[in-house]
C-alpha cells in the first residue's frame, strides 16, 4: 500500500488493497455515527475485534480525542489477563472508559444468572447493556461484530436499529445503499453500528499484522490448565471456573482464537506464537471461530434469539 502512495501517476498505483478498502469503509462509518448521533459509545471488551475498532477510531479522529467514550460490559467472568490488558491499553490511548458491571445488576436484582451450577453470564449481559444505555443515554453503540461470524449476523445491517427494549427485528430492517447511512431515530430508539461488518476473521488478523497492533497474550500460544468438556478444551482457573467432578486437569499448549468469558470460551491446541503463525493457522483452520464459543451451541438460532432480546 505505501508504494501506491509513494508513486502516484499510473492508474494502477491508485490501487487500494482489500485491507485499506475495508479500513476506509470503517472510518467512513465511524465518522457518520459521530456526526449523526448525540451520544455514541464504543463497546470495548479487550478482545481483538474491539482493539481493531479502537485503531480504526484513531484513524478516523486523531489527532483529536474520540467524540465518544469506550464502554465495557464487565461480566465478572473475564480472563484476568484480558482485564490487565484493558486497563493498560486504555491508559495508553488516553480515552475515557466506562465500566458497567453485570454483578451490580445481579446484586440489585435487575439481572439473574442462568440457573445451574455453572451459569453463563451471557444472558445477564443484556439487561446490563440496556441499563448502561439508559443511565448514560447512549443513542448509538459501536460493536465489533462481523457478518462472517454467524448466519444471523450475515443479514444484519451496518446501522442496526433497536426499539425501546433493545430488540432487533430482522424482517423490518432499513435498506442500506451505497455509502449512505440513515441514522434517524426516535427518542428511546437506539442503534448498534458494526463498522467491521464486512471483515472476516482473516482480515482482522491481517490488519493486526499490517498495523502492528498489540493484543492480549491469550491469543498467542502458551501453557495453560484446561479440561476436556463436551469435546472442547475449557480453561480452568479460580472458582467458579475450576474443574468439575470427573474432569482431569491437563496442562497443554494452547491459544484462544476468540476471547469472551472464561465460562464460555474454549481454547485450541496451537503452537502459533506470533502473528505470521496465527495467520497461517487461521488459513488452514477447518472450524469456524464461533465454534469455540460454547454459548452459540445452545440451538441453531441461539444468536438470532439473543439479538432479538437486545444482545449485541
Amino acid at each position: 500500500m505505501t508504494s501506491a502512495i509513494e508513486k502516484p501517476g499510473a492508474h494502477e498505483h491508485y490501487r487500494l488493497t482489500h485491507l485499506k478498502a475495508l479500513e476506509a469503509e470503517a472510518i467512513h462509518i465511524m465518522r457518520e455515527v459521530a456526526a449523526q448521533f448525540e451520544k455514541p459509545a464504543l463497546m470495548f471488551s479487550g478482545g481483538k475485534d474491539s482493539i481493531v475498532m479502537v485503531r480504526l477510531a484513531q484513524k478516523a479522529f486523531r489527532p483529536a480525542k474520540f467524540p465518544f467514550p469506550l464502554l465495557h460490559i464487565d461480566t465478572g467472568h473475564n480472563f484476568p489477563e484480558a482485564l490487565d490488558f484493558r486497563d493498560k491499553f486504555v491508559d495508553e490511548i488516553g480515552e475515557r472508559l466506562i465500566i458497567h458491571k453485570v454483578q451490580d445488576l445481579i446484586d440489585r436484582g435487575d439481572a439473574v444468572e442462568d440457573p445451574g451450577a455453572f451459569p453463563s453470564r451471557n444472558r445477564a449481559q443484556i439487561p446490563t447493556l440496556l441499563d448502561a444505555i439508559e443511565k448514560y443515554q447512549f443513542d448509538a453503540l459501536f460493536g465489533g461484530a462481523r457478518r462472517d461470524e454467524e448466519k444471523a449476523r450475515a443479514k444484519e445491517r451496518i446501522f442496526s436499529f433497536r426499539d425501546d427494549f433493545g430488540q432487533w427485528d430482522p424482517k423490518n430492517q432499513r435498506p442500506e445503499l451505497w455509502n449512505l447511512y440513515n441514522g434517524r431515530s426516535r427518542m428511546g430508539e437506539n442503534i448498534r453500528v458494526f463498522p467491521i461488518s464486512n471483515w472476516t476473521e482473516m482480515d482482522v488478523w491481517q490488519y493486526i499484522m499490517l498495523e502492528e497492533i498489540e493484543i492480549p497474550d491469550l491469543y498467542f500460544s502458551h501453557k495453560r490448565d484446561v479440561v476436556e468438556r463436551r469435546g472442547q478444551l475449557v480453561p480452568v482457573g479460580d472458582a467458579p471456573f475450576g474443574a468439575r467432578e470427573g474432569e482431569t486437569i491437563v496442562n497443554r499448549t494452547v491459544r484462544f482464537r476468540t476471547v469472551g468469558d472464561m465460562s464460555c470460551t474454549a481454547a485450541t491446541d496451537s503452537p502459533a506464537s506470533n502473528l505470521e503463525e496465527i495467520v497461517a493457522e487461521v488459513a488452514a483452520a477447518r472450524a469456524s471461530e464461533r465454534g469455540a464459543r460454547i454459548d452459540d451451541k445452545t440451538n441453531e438460532a441461539a444468536m438470532e434469539d439473543r439479538k432479538k432480546e437486545g444482545y449485541f
Binding site: 479500513e23 476506509a24 467512513h28
Partner: peptide
C-alpha cells in the same frame, strides 16, 4: 493524513 499519519495523495475510496 489518516489519523495523523501523513499521505501524499488521496484517491477513492480512501477516508
Amino acid at each position: 493524513d489518516i489519523g495523523g499519519d501523513p499521505q501524499q495523495m488521496a484517491s477513492p475510496p480512501m477516508s
